[in-house]
Protein backbone atom coordinates (compact mmCIF):
# COMPACT_ATOMS: atom_id res chain seq x y z
CA UNK A 1 0.00 0.00 0.00
CA UNK A 2 1.27 3.41 -0.92
CA UNK A 3 0.57 6.38 1.27
CA UNK A 4 1.82 9.93 0.85
CA UNK A 5 2.39 12.03 3.93
CA UNK A 6 3.57 15.62 3.54
CA UNK A 7 4.59 14.84 -0.06
CA UNK A 8 6.73 11.86 0.98
CA UNK A 9 5.49 8.53 -0.33
CA UNK A 10 6.06 5.33 1.56
CA UNK A 11 5.12 1.71 1.08
CA UNK A 12 3.34 0.16 4.09
CA UNK A 13 1.36 -2.97 4.90
CA UNK A 14 -2.42 -3.05 5.00
CA UNK A 15 -3.78 -2.25 8.45
CA UNK A 16 -1.09 0.33 9.22
CA UNK A 17 -2.33 3.54 10.77
CA UNK A 18 -1.39 6.97 9.45
CA UNK A 19 0.62 7.51 12.65
CA UNK A 20 2.66 4.34 12.15
CA UNK A 21 3.32 5.20 8.51
CA UNK A 22 4.38 8.74 9.42
CA UNK A 23 6.70 7.50 12.16
CA UNK A 24 8.26 5.17 9.61
CA UNK A 25 9.15 8.20 7.50
CA UNK A 26 10.60 10.09 10.42
CA UNK A 27 10.05 12.58 13.22
CA UNK A 28 9.66 15.51 10.80
CA UNK A 29 6.29 14.24 9.56
CA UNK A 30 5.15 12.21 12.57
CA UNK A 31 2.17 13.87 14.25
CA UNK A 32 2.45 14.48 17.99
CA UNK A 33 0.73 12.02 20.31
CA UNK A 34 -0.43 12.72 23.83
CA UNK A 35 -2.74 9.77 24.44
CA UNK A 36 -1.75 7.23 21.79
CA UNK A 37 0.74 4.65 23.04
CA UNK A 38 1.59 1.97 20.54
CA UNK A 39 2.26 -0.89 23.00
CA UNK A 40 -1.14 -0.37 24.62
CA UNK A 41 -4.08 -1.80 22.70
CA UNK A 42 -6.99 0.52 21.88
CA UNK A 43 -5.20 3.61 23.17
CA UNK A 44 -5.50 6.77 21.13
CA UNK A 45 -8.17 8.92 19.58
CA UNK A 46 -8.74 11.01 22.68
CA UNK A 47 -6.33 13.93 22.85
CA UNK A 48 -6.86 15.02 19.22
CA UNK A 49 -3.24 16.22 19.02
CA UNK A 50 -2.57 14.04 15.99
CA UNK A 51 -5.44 15.30 13.83
CA UNK A 52 -4.33 15.37 10.20
CA UNK A 53 -5.95 16.32 6.92
CA UNK A 54 -6.63 13.56 4.41
CA UNK A 55 -6.75 15.26 1.03
CA UNK A 56 -7.38 12.04 -0.88
CA UNK A 57 -9.02 9.04 0.76
CA UNK A 58 -7.58 6.40 -1.54
CA UNK A 59 -6.69 5.62 -5.12
CA UNK A 60 -10.19 4.28 -5.78
CA UNK A 61 -12.03 7.09 -4.03
CA UNK A 62 -9.82 10.18 -4.13
CA UNK A 63 -12.31 12.44 -2.38
CA UNK A 64 -10.90 14.30 0.63
CA UNK A 65 -12.22 13.39 4.06
CA UNK A 66 -14.60 16.12 5.30
CA UNK A 67 -13.16 16.36 8.82
CA UNK A 68 -9.66 16.14 10.19
CA UNK A 69 -8.97 12.58 11.26
CA UNK A 70 -6.90 11.27 14.19
CA UNK A 71 -3.75 9.78 12.67
CA UNK A 72 -3.31 7.28 15.48
CA UNK A 73 -6.47 5.28 14.81
CA UNK A 74 -7.12 5.90 11.11
CA UNK A 75 -5.88 3.11 8.87
CA UNK A 76 -4.24 4.01 5.60
CA UNK A 77 -5.78 3.16 2.23
CA UNK A 78 -3.85 2.55 -0.95
CA UNK A 79 -3.09 5.90 -2.53
CA UNK A 80 -4.10 7.96 0.48
CA UNK A 81 -2.66 11.47 0.62
CA UNK A 82 -2.20 12.99 4.07
CA UNK A 83 -1.14 16.47 5.08
CA UNK A 84 0.34 17.02 8.49
CA UNK A 85 2.90 19.74 9.06
CA UNK A 86 2.22 21.43 5.72
CA UNK A 87 -1.50 22.01 6.26
CA UNK A 88 -2.65 25.33 7.67
CA UNK A 89 -5.88 23.93 9.12
CA UNK A 90 -3.99 21.16 10.92
CA UNK A 91 -1.53 23.62 12.44
CA UNK A 92 -4.34 25.91 13.60
CA UNK A 93 -6.29 23.03 15.11
CA UNK A 94 -3.19 21.77 16.88
CA UNK A 95 -2.68 25.21 18.42
CA UNK A 96 -6.22 24.88 19.70
CA UNK A 97 -5.53 21.44 21.17
CA UNK A 98 -2.49 22.79 23.03
CA UNK A 99 -4.63 25.60 24.36
CA UNK A 100 -7.33 23.18 25.49
CA UNK A 101 -4.85 20.87 27.20
CA UNK A 102 -3.21 23.74 29.05
CA UNK A 103 -6.50 25.33 30.05
CA UNK A 104 -6.72 23.47 33.33
CA UNK A 105 -3.11 22.32 33.50
CA UNK A 106 -0.95 24.30 35.95
CA UNK A 107 1.86 26.20 34.23
CA UNK A 108 4.34 25.47 36.98
CA UNK A 109 6.92 23.46 35.05
CA UNK A 110 9.77 24.87 37.20
CA UNK A 111 8.45 23.00 40.23
CA UNK A 112 7.06 19.99 38.39
CA UNK A 113 8.93 16.71 38.65
CA UNK A 114 8.19 15.80 35.06
CA UNK A 115 9.81 18.91 33.57
CA UNK A 116 12.44 17.93 31.05
CA UNK A 117 10.76 14.68 30.11
CA UNK A 118 7.19 15.95 29.81
CA UNK A 119 5.36 15.29 26.56
CA UNK A 120 2.95 18.15 27.15
CA UNK A 121 5.89 20.52 27.60
CA UNK A 122 7.36 19.38 24.29
CA UNK A 123 3.98 19.49 22.59
CA UNK A 124 3.20 23.04 23.68
CA UNK A 125 6.74 24.19 22.88
CA UNK A 126 6.49 22.83 19.35
CA UNK A 127 2.85 23.48 18.50
CA UNK A 128 1.44 26.00 20.92
CA UNK A 129 1.39 29.78 21.08
CA UNK A 130 3.32 31.80 23.62
CA UNK A 131 0.36 33.74 24.96
CA UNK A 132 -2.79 32.75 26.81
CA UNK A 133 -6.33 33.92 26.17
CA UNK A 134 -7.95 32.68 29.32
CA UNK A 135 -8.56 34.56 32.55
CA UNK A 136 -10.58 31.77 34.11
CA UNK A 137 -9.45 29.99 37.24
CA UNK A 138 -8.13 26.49 36.79
CA UNK A 139 -9.95 23.47 38.16
CA UNK A 140 -8.03 22.05 41.07
CA UNK A 141 -8.00 18.70 42.84
CA UNK A 142 -6.38 17.33 45.97
CA UNK A 143 -3.13 15.40 45.65
CA UNK A 144 -3.57 11.74 46.46
CA UNK A 145 -1.56 8.58 46.86
CA UNK A 146 -2.13 5.70 44.52
CA UNK A 147 -0.76 2.94 46.67
CA UNK A 148 2.63 2.88 48.36
CA UNK A 149 4.76 3.77 45.33
CA UNK A 150 2.84 6.28 43.22
CA UNK A 151 1.79 9.87 43.81
CA UNK A 152 -1.13 11.22 41.83
CA UNK A 153 -1.46 14.91 41.05
CA UNK A 154 -4.83 15.25 39.31
CA UNK A 155 -4.25 18.90 38.47
CA UNK A 156 -1.63 17.89 35.94
CA UNK A 157 -3.61 14.97 34.51
CA UNK A 158 -4.73 15.35 30.89
CA UNK A 159 -6.97 12.26 30.95
CA UNK A 160 -5.11 10.36 28.26
CA UNK A 161 -6.32 7.06 29.74
CA UNK A 162 -2.85 5.52 29.24
CA UNK A 163 -2.54 4.44 32.88
CA UNK A 164 -6.02 2.93 32.69
CA UNK A 165 -5.05 0.83 29.70
CA UNK A 166 -1.74 -0.09 31.35
CA UNK A 167 -3.53 -1.32 34.45
CA UNK A 168 -5.97 -3.23 32.23
CA UNK A 169 -3.40 -4.83 29.98
CA UNK A 170 -0.17 -5.13 31.98
CA UNK A 171 -1.25 -5.69 35.57
CA UNK A 172 -3.43 -8.44 36.96
CA UNK A 173 -6.35 -6.28 37.94
CA UNK A 174 -7.30 -2.67 37.56
CA UNK A 175 -8.51 -0.89 40.66
CA UNK A 176 -8.37 2.65 39.36
CA UNK A 177 -10.10 4.46 36.55
CA UNK A 178 -11.74 7.68 35.46
CA UNK A 179 -14.51 9.00 37.67
CA UNK A 180 -16.99 11.75 36.86
CA UNK A 181 -17.44 13.52 33.54
CA UNK A 182 -16.15 16.43 31.51
CA UNK A 183 -13.49 18.73 32.91
CA UNK A 184 -14.31 17.52 36.43
CA UNK A 185 -13.34 13.97 35.43
CA UNK A 186 -10.49 12.58 37.49
CA UNK A 187 -8.31 9.52 37.82
CA UNK A 188 -9.17 7.77 41.03
CA UNK A 189 -9.15 4.40 42.71
CA UNK A 190 -12.25 2.43 43.49
CA UNK A 191 -13.29 3.57 46.99
CA UNK A 192 -9.79 4.61 48.11
CA UNK A 193 -8.32 1.26 47.22
CA UNK A 194 -4.54 1.11 46.96
CA UNK A 195 -2.97 0.38 43.59
CA UNK A 196 -0.69 -2.45 44.55
CA UNK A 197 0.48 -5.07 42.14
CA UNK A 198 3.79 -6.07 40.62
CA UNK A 199 3.55 -3.96 37.48
CA UNK A 200 1.78 -0.85 38.76
CA UNK A 201 4.96 1.21 38.41
CA UNK A 202 4.57 1.22 34.65
CA UNK A 203 1.72 3.68 35.05
CA UNK A 204 4.38 6.23 35.95
CA UNK A 205 6.29 5.56 32.76
CA UNK A 206 3.30 5.84 30.45
CA UNK A 207 2.03 9.08 32.01
CA UNK A 208 2.84 11.83 29.49
CA UNK A 209 2.72 14.54 32.16
CA UNK A 210 3.62 14.88 35.84
CA UNK A 211 0.36 13.45 37.14
CA UNK A 212 1.79 10.10 38.21
CA UNK A 213 5.18 10.26 39.84
CA UNK A 214 7.52 7.80 41.52
CA UNK A 215 7.46 8.32 45.29
CA UNK A 216 11.01 6.97 45.68
CA UNK A 217 12.31 9.57 43.22
CA UNK A 218 10.05 12.63 43.61
CA UNK A 219 11.93 15.88 44.04
CA UNK A 220 15.30 14.18 44.45
CA UNK A 221 16.77 15.69 41.33
CA UNK A 222 15.95 17.47 38.11
CA UNK A 223 16.04 14.96 35.32
CA UNK A 224 18.80 16.79 33.46
CA UNK A 225 21.14 16.49 36.44
CA UNK A 226 20.95 12.71 36.31
CA UNK A 227 22.75 10.38 33.95
CA UNK A 228 20.77 7.62 32.23
CA UNK A 229 22.58 4.31 31.85
CA UNK A 230 21.25 1.14 30.22
CA UNK A 231 21.46 -1.88 32.49
CA UNK A 232 19.92 -5.29 32.93
CA UNK A 233 19.50 -7.94 35.56
CA UNK A 234 18.08 -11.43 35.54
CA UNK A 235 14.60 -10.92 36.88
CA UNK A 236 12.06 -13.70 37.08
CA UNK A 237 9.11 -11.35 36.64
CA UNK A 238 10.14 -9.09 33.79
CA UNK A 239 12.75 -8.70 31.08
CA UNK A 240 15.06 -6.86 33.47
CA UNK A 241 16.06 -4.36 30.79
CA UNK A 242 16.00 -0.93 32.37
CA UNK A 243 17.53 2.50 32.49
CA UNK A 244 19.33 3.48 35.70
CA UNK A 245 19.33 7.18 36.43
CA UNK A 246 22.50 8.11 38.29
CA UNK A 247 23.24 11.17 40.30
CA UNK A 248 26.89 10.90 41.16
CA UNK A 249 27.39 7.28 42.18
CA UNK A 250 23.87 6.86 43.43
CA UNK A 251 21.02 5.24 41.46
CA UNK A 252 18.16 7.61 42.12
CA UNK A 253 15.60 6.12 39.76
CA UNK A 254 14.94 3.05 37.63
CA UNK A 255 12.67 3.25 34.59
CA UNK A 256 11.84 1.11 31.59
CA UNK A 257 13.59 1.77 28.28
CA UNK A 258 11.77 3.96 25.83
CA UNK A 259 11.90 4.19 22.07
CA UNK A 260 12.33 7.46 20.20
CA UNK A 261 8.58 8.21 20.55
CA UNK A 262 8.78 7.95 24.31
CA UNK A 263 7.04 4.59 24.50
CA UNK A 264 8.12 1.72 26.74
CA UNK A 265 8.35 -1.43 24.70
CA UNK A 266 9.25 -3.68 27.64
CA UNK A 267 7.39 -3.10 30.85
CA UNK A 268 9.31 -3.74 34.06
CA UNK A 269 8.26 -5.04 37.44
CA UNK A 270 8.05 -3.07 40.66
CA UNK A 271 10.94 -4.97 42.24
CA UNK A 272 13.29 -3.76 39.51
CA UNK A 273 11.82 -0.28 39.62
CA UNK A 274 11.56 0.45 43.32
CA UNK A 275 13.82 -2.01 45.16
CA UNK A 276 16.97 -2.58 43.08
CA UNK A 277 18.75 0.70 43.57
CA UNK A 278 22.33 -0.42 43.96
CA UNK A 279 24.81 -0.61 41.13
CA UNK A 280 25.73 -4.11 42.32
CA UNK A 281 22.18 -5.27 41.47
CA UNK A 282 22.76 -4.57 37.81
CA UNK A 283 24.95 -5.32 34.84
CA UNK A 284 25.76 -2.00 33.21
CA UNK A 285 25.58 -1.89 29.41
CA UNK A 286 26.55 1.70 28.76
CA UNK A 287 25.05 5.17 28.40
CA UNK A 288 21.44 5.28 27.22
CA UNK A 289 20.64 6.75 23.87
CA UNK A 290 18.88 10.04 24.48
CA UNK A 291 17.81 12.43 21.76
CA UNK A 292 20.34 15.22 21.22
CA UNK A 293 17.50 17.74 21.41
CA UNK A 294 16.43 16.57 24.82
CA UNK A 295 17.40 18.60 27.84
CA UNK A 296 18.47 15.33 29.42
CA UNK A 297 21.50 15.21 27.12
CA UNK A 298 22.62 18.64 28.19
CA UNK A 299 26.25 18.57 29.37
CA UNK A 300 26.51 14.82 28.93
CA UNK A 301 28.43 12.49 26.70
CA UNK A 302 29.70 15.32 24.57
CA UNK A 303 26.24 16.22 23.37
CA UNK A 304 26.73 19.92 23.88
CA UNK A 305 30.50 19.89 23.86
CA UNK A 306 32.19 22.25 21.44
CA UNK A 307 34.47 20.14 19.32
CA UNK A 308 38.15 21.16 19.52
CA UNK A 309 38.43 21.39 15.76
CA UNK A 310 35.85 24.10 15.67
CA UNK A 311 37.54 26.86 17.78
CA UNK A 312 40.80 26.41 15.96
CA UNK A 313 39.10 26.73 12.60
CA UNK A 314 37.12 29.68 13.90
CA UNK A 315 40.26 31.44 15.13
CA UNK A 316 42.06 30.81 11.88
CA UNK A 317 39.25 32.33 9.85
CA UNK A 318 38.83 35.35 12.06
CA UNK A 319 42.51 36.10 12.58
CA UNK A 320 43.30 39.79 12.60
CA UNK A 321 46.63 41.49 12.86
CA UNK A 322 46.66 43.14 16.22
CA UNK A 323 48.86 45.94 17.31
CA UNK A 324 51.32 44.89 19.96
CA UNK A 325 51.27 47.50 22.66
CA UNK A 326 54.56 46.30 23.98
CA UNK A 327 56.32 47.75 20.94
CA UNK A 328 55.53 51.18 22.18
CA UNK A 329 55.92 50.62 25.87
CA UNK A 330 58.54 52.59 27.58
CA UNK A 331 60.22 49.37 28.64
CA UNK A 332 61.22 48.62 25.12
CA UNK A 333 62.45 52.04 24.33
CA UNK A 334 66.17 52.10 25.05
CA UNK A 335 66.17 55.78 26.06
CA UNK A 336 63.70 55.18 28.83
CA UNK A 337 65.91 52.69 30.59
CA UNK A 338 67.24 53.80 33.92
CA UNK A 339 70.30 55.95 33.51
CA UNK A 340 72.35 53.76 35.80
CA UNK A 341 72.35 50.93 33.26
CA UNK A 342 73.51 52.99 30.36
Amino acid sequence: MKVTIDNITIEVEAGTTIMQAARKIGPEVAPPAMCYYEPLKSSGGKCRACLVKVTAGSEKDPRPMPKLVPACITQVQDGMIVENAINEQVIETRKGVVEFLLLNHPLDCPVCDQAGECHLQDFSFEHGVASTRTVEERNTFEETDLGPHIKLNKNRCILCYRCVYTADQITDGRVHGVMHRGDHAEISTYIEQAVDNDFSGNMIDVCPVGALTDKTYRFKSRVWFSKPVDAHCSCDKCSGNVILWYRGDEVIRVTSRKNEWGESLEFICNTCRFDRKKTSDWTIEGPSKISRNSVISANKYGANLIRPAFPIQHAAQNFKQIEDDRDRSFLNIPTSLPAAEK
Binding site: F100, L103, L159, R181, G182, D183
Partner: peptide
Protein backbone atom coordinates in the same frame (compact mmCIF):
# COMPACT_ATOMS: atom_id res chain seq x y z
CA UNK B 1 -22.97 20.65 27.68
CA UNK B 2 -20.21 21.46 30.14
CA UNK B 3 -21.91 19.20 32.64
CA UNK B 4 -22.62 16.44 30.14
CA UNK B 5 -19.34 16.21 28.21
CA UNK B 6 -17.89 12.78 28.88
CA UNK B 7 -14.37 14.21 29.20
CA UNK B 8 -12.77 11.76 26.86
CA UNK B 9 -11.38 14.01 24.14
CA UNK B 10 -9.70 17.27 24.98
CA UNK B 11 -11.45 19.85 22.74
CA UNK B 12 -14.87 18.98 24.13
CA UNK B 13 -13.78 18.37 27.72
CA UNK B 14 -11.91 21.66 28.07
CA UNK B 15 -13.77 23.71 25.46
CA UNK B 16 -17.25 23.21 26.89
CA UNK B 17 -16.02 24.27 30.31
CA UNK B 18 -14.27 27.29 28.87
CA UNK B 19 -17.33 28.49 26.95
CA UNK B 20 -19.46 28.02 30.04
CA UNK B 21 -17.10 30.10 32.17
CA UNK B 22 -16.75 32.88 29.60
Amino acid sequence: YHHESCGQCSPCREGTGWMDKV
